[in-house]
């Protein structure tokens, strides 16, 4: 059964205020090499069968909001 991972991230043009807070914390902990942090989410879909078009449709219909988010699909067959 294919396992599909959908990575949803805020569009680069938008300020990710949670990511900014984490970045500030990392800098405070001494990780000076951190330039930027962006937070997103991973959605795992266990499917009976994989159809690329249908998964993309799932993403644009509900899993991601195209107004503010980008998505990337990874399939493990």
């Amino acid at each position: 059964m294919p396992l599909v991972r959908v990575f949803v991230t805020l569009k680069p043009s938008l300020l990710d205020s949670a990511g900014k807070a984490v970045s500030d914390s990392l800098l405070k902990l001494g990780y000076q090499e951190v330039e930027k942090v962006r937070i997103g989410k991973v959605i795992e879909l266990q499917l009976e069968s994989y159809d690329e078009a249908r998964v993309k449709q799932m993403c644009s219909q509900i899993l991601a909001n195209p107004v503010i988010e980008d998505f990337k699909v990874e399939v493990q067959k």
């Binding site: 805020l10 938008l14 300020l15 205020s17 949670a18 909001n65 107004v67 503010i68």
Partner: peptide, 17 residues
């Protein structure tokens, strides 16, 4: 209403978190 597409745009985490 934004998610429904009746209104444009979206609402995300406040800038000050």
């Amino acid at each position: 209403l934004c998610e429904l597409g009746l209104l444009p745009g979206a609402l995300i985490l406040n800038a000050g978190q």
